[in-house]
């Protein structure tokens, strides 16, 4: 809903993401603020923000597969893991940084295609089960491969990233690195629904039989949706590998996949704004739980780290259930309602 008095003389203007000068200004301010953050913030906040950006990239991948194409993917964390291990391997072989990230993304995409192939035969829930199998098989395979290949139980060290002689292995370097790729993810996430591929995904999501009748190659689009989603996961995994400097299987569990899905659902699965809102909201909830638990422990009460994890999974599960039952369109819809209400005030919406 636009404020009154704004109209367009070209179709491009009507279709653009940022329609008004004011929205462009707000976005510019936000970008400048995020760019200037390392000047004021300490290493802890920068680390948290880097983590948030990496999560955002992975969740945008889910947005493409789950939100736009409607194919359930519960293996995003395993795909991030594939990206991380691929990046560690390539970096260990001495490939330069700018080559490692795309290579890891492509490897992840190809792995995801293997598990998307049943899309030719099954749909909906049954397809989700193949991704579940991917998530469960991933650690088993990594652990069973010879130690010299992917590190097995121990894990793999990752050399520091280095871009044309510029050392990125500082908190600020990692922050900017993750920021650039997260910005790329957001940019593609907002533009994909407006492209031919994005419209095909949407058609498959709404009714795949009807989409086939319209001449859309349904099976190919479904597999491409998985491929595209896994590209994001691969990028996220590569940056995560550099950021953690060491990759082990235990970082990429089914629970992380559920967290990614939960963030997408809480934020809203149908708009590109959803992943941002969901990731920020869930991260805030998680961090405040951690802080609350820490103060709780300092006051003398007994509370193990496991209990904090259990509590945060209960809270996330409740968030998902509340979102599913009461607001399936997620925080993005609430945000949209609030903005529209603000613009039309004092007149009622509708």
């Amino acid at each position: 809903m636009r404020p009154t008095g704004i109209w367009f003389q070209s179709y491009a203007g009507e279709a653009s993401v940022l329609q008004t000068r004011r929205s462009r200004l707000w976005l510019g301010l936000l970008g400048l603020g995020l760019l200037a953050l390392p000047l004021t913030a300490g290493p802890w906040l920068l680390g948290e923000m880097t983590h948030l950006f990496i999560t955002l990239i992975a969740v945008y991948g889910l947005f493409v597969t789950v939100g736009m194409a409607g194919q359930i993917n519960i293996a995003q964390s395993a795909f991030v893991g594939v990206g991380a291990f691929a990046a560690a391997k390539f970096a260990g072989l001495g490939l330069p940084f700018w080559l490692v990230v795309p290579a890891a993304a492509v490897v992840t995409g190809l792995v995801s295609v293997v598990f998307a192939l049943p899309a030719a035969r099954v749909r909906g829930f049954y397809l989700a089960l193949t991704t579940l199998a991917a998530q469960i098989i991933f650690p088993i395979v990594i652990l069973a491969l010879p130690m010299s290949w992917l590190g097995g139980l121990v894990g793999m060290p990752v050399p520091a990233p280095d871009l044309f002689g510029l050392n990125l292995a500082t908190p600020t370097g990692f922050y900017y690195l993750a920021f650039v790729f997260a910005a790329l993810a957001v940019w593609t996430g907002f533009n994909l629904p407006r492209s031919r591929f994005g419209r095909a995904l949407r058609a498959v999501h709404d009714n795949d039989t009807a989409a086939g009748v319209l001449g859309i190659p349904v099976t190919r689009i479904k597999i491409e949706a998985f491929f595209a989603g896994a590209l994001y996961a691969g990028v996220a995994g590569a940056i995560l590998a550099y950021f953690l400097q060491f990759v082990t299987v235990s970082s990429f569990t089914l629970f992380t996949s559920v967290w990614y899905l939960g963030m997408l659902i809480v934020g809203g699965i149908h708009t590109p704004l959803g992943p941002i809102l969901g990731v920020v909201f869930v991260t805030l909830v998680q961090e405040s739980l951690h802080t609350a638990a820490n103060t709780f422990m300092q006051s003398g009460a007994f509370m193990g780290g496991g209990a904090v994890f259990a509590l945060s999974s209960v809270v996330l599960a409740l968030c998902i259930l509340i979102a599913l039952i009461f607001e399936p369109r997620g925080l993005a819809h609430l945000w949209h309602t609030a903005v529209t209400g603000f613009r039309l005030w004092p007149f009622p919406r509708n």
């Binding site: 789950v66 496991g306 509590l311 599960a317 998902i320 259930l321």
Partner: peptide, 21 residues
């Protein structure tokens, strides 16, 4: 089916967390 699936996933982590608590 997606909603039912996600409700099942949410139930999974809810029960896991509750059992641990």
């Amino acid at each position: 089916a997606f909603t039912i699936f996600m409700a099942g996933v949410a139930l999974l982590i809810l029960l896991r967390g509750l059992a641990q608590l």
